[in-house]
């Protein structure tokens, strides 16, 4: 360690001082025209759309990211959904065609396991996309953008809700693509109605709101993506497997059924299958809606309330 300033170091500053003699920019033409500061939008929601758009724009200008997130449900649908041919499995026991359909319908609420699974895949894509909404908070903190946003007068609640909404936007568009893939691959569309599809997406919207708020909330304090990854893995697969996404509740052991009954993913699936496949369903539609609405409202409100505490250190 040299106590004396090195010549290089000294020169650096000398040169900097010399630079000052260069004619001033502002002497020629003013670079900032004198104009009064504008009237600011001071509503607590200002900046919400700007922040949401920022994330959405990055997502749809990056086709790889979209492609990668779609691979998983597409592969499950193509391989799992087509390979698990419960129909031929049952007919190989010598049952008649009508008996086969009856067994299938009684188990899955539809005669096509593929269609049953397709509805589960809609929930799965929502779940996986929502779980990564927290990751985007972690990276914003890590790369300093979160601090920049927080040093502006933008509402802390708007920062959090923007993360939730971008996740909802992404997951719903991905769900639409998954549904299209499923139809192409042979999903039963006999019971499709415009109102039914819209109603199904309302279920997906509510589930996405609740799950995204939950994962964003869990990420608010964290700046460590490994921790966040662990949280995602810890919650994601249990939420998927302990639901009726892949298999009907009726074939599960009773302890698992208890878990499935509180899992919001099950309620979304139950409603979506009633609306898209005309399945009998386990709950009344209104009850499924009410349950998911409560779930979404609870976590988004808790998320906004916590944002004020967690984002200011």
């Amino acid at each position: 360690m040299d106590k004396n300033p090195s010549p290089v170091e000294d020169n650096r500053f000398r040169e900097a001082t010399v630079q000052e003699e260069v004619p001033r920019l502002a002497n020629t033409t003013p670079l900032i025209s004198p104009r009064p500061a504008p009237e600011l939008n001071t509503s607590p929601l200002h900046g919400l759309w700007a922040l949401t758009k920022r994330d959405l724009k990055k997502w749809f200008t990056n086709p790889y990211q979209l492609l990668i997130t779609l691979i998983q449900p597409a592969v499950w649908l193509g391989l799992f959904g087509k390979a698990l041919n419960f129909g031929s499995f049952i007919s190989s026991t010598g049952a008649s065609a009508s008996a086969q359909n009856m067994i299938l319908f009684n188990t899955f609420g539809t005669t096509s396991y593929f269609s049953f699974l397709a509805c589960g895949m809609l929930a799965s894509i929502i779940l996986f996309t929502a779980s990564f909404s927290g990751m985007s908070v972690v990276f914003d903190r890590r790369f300093g953008f979160l601090n920049k946003a927080l040093s502006t007068p933008v509402g802390r609640g708007a920062v959090v809700m923007a993360k939730v909404f971008q996740s909802v936007g992404r997951s719903l568009s991905q769900a639409a693509i998954v549904l299209a893939i499923a139809v192409v691959l042979g999903m039963d569309t006999a019971n499709f109605t415009i109102l039914g599809v819209a109603g199904a997406f309302l279920f997906l919207f509510l589930m996405s709101m609740g799950l995204s708020s939950l994962f964003v909330m869990l990420a608010l304090k964290s700046s460590n993506w490994q921790t966040q990854m662990a949280i995602i893995n810890l919650l994601n697969l249990p939420l998927l497997f302990a639901s009726n996404s892949l298999f009907p509740t009726t074939i599960m052991p009773s302890w698992l059924q208890a878990v499935v009954k509180v899992n919001p993913v099950s309620y979304s699936n139950d409603g979506v299958r009633q609306l898209l496949l005309g399945s009998p369903g386990f709950n009344a539609l209104w009850f499924d809606y009410a349950y998911l609405f409560g779930f979404a409202a609870f976590f988004s409100i808790v998320g906004i309330v916590l944002s004020w505490r967690l984002l200011s250190k």
Binding site: L40, N41, T42, S43, H46, G47, A50, L51, R54, K57, K58, F143, G144, F145, N147, K148, A149, T152, P153, V154
Partner: peptide, 20 residues
Amino acid sequence: TADEEMTGYDNIILCADLYG
């Protein structure tokens, strides 16, 4: 703290939006 995936111009406009 700028967003690396956006342009310089978009970054400054986003900042302005955050100020309302």
